[in-house]
Amino acid sequence: MVELSKARGSYVDPAPARVTVETWARDWLRSQSQLKPTTLVGYESALSKHIIPRWGRRSLSDIGYAEIQHWISDLSKNLAPQTVRNIYAVFSLVFSFAVRDGRLVRNPAEGIQLPRRIKAKRGYLTHAQVHRLADECGDSRTLVLFLAYTGLRWGEAAARRQRQSIPALRSLFMLSV
């Protein structure tokens, strides 16, 4: 079998895959210089809270698909679906890094069944509620109406120049009660 793998060019020396998940995950994380600091913090959190405690002492080559699937199913009992998906994404990226480095032939986390996303129910204010809210905001009434009816986020509205926005907004909302 080894000779056949060598002939096909798919042979992977098993020795490098004996590195522990913790060692490899930390090495992978150090290599992620392209990420935003907030993303790195999220990855570090997933590693330290969920991945390393469960898998840290195991070698990369000793972990299989079924074990990972059972772990994901267990996580899904106590964590929100998106949290489980985020933890899984980090775990899978660690293994993908090992595949690219030639330590593993394939990623054992590939194809894991993940919990379904739950779409949050969104609540919307009625026109009367929007106007009541705006009235309670005093001098910011026009801004509240602008945000409510345009869908702009606060940062987008705050970035607008006053000379461009305020006169136009006042005239626009003078029609409102």
Rank of each mutant, 00 (worst) to 15 (best):
F95V: 01
A80L: 07
Q82A: 11
E110R: 09
V105E: 15
I68W: 04
I112K: 08
Q82L: 11
W71M: 02
N78K: 11
G102S: 10
H70D: 14
H70T: 03
G102L: 10
V99H: 09
E67D: 15
Q69N: 01
V99Q: 10
N107W: 03
V99L: 11
R100V: 07
I87A: 00
F95T: 01
S96N: 15
W71P: 00
K77Q: 15
Y88F: 14
S92Y: 02
S76K: 01
S76F: 07
I72T: 06
V105A: 15
P81N: 08
Q113G: 04
G102Y: 08
S96L: 01
F91N: 03
V84M: 10
I87R: 04
S92D: 03
A89S: 13
N78W: 00
A89V: 05
F97I: 00
S92W: 02
S76T: 10
N86Y: 09
N78L: 05
S76D: 14
A98N: 11
L79C: 08
G111S: 13
A80M: 01
F97A: 14
V94P: 02
L104Y: 13
E67L: 00
G111Q: 14
T83C: 02
V99T: 13
P108C: 06
F97K: 13
A98P: 12
G111I: 07
V99C: 11
R106W: 00
Y88I: 02
A109V: 06
L75C: 10
R106V: 13
A89G: 01
L79R: 06
V94Q: 01
L93N: 14
V94M: 12
Y88S: 05
V94I: 15
Y88T: 05
F91L: 15
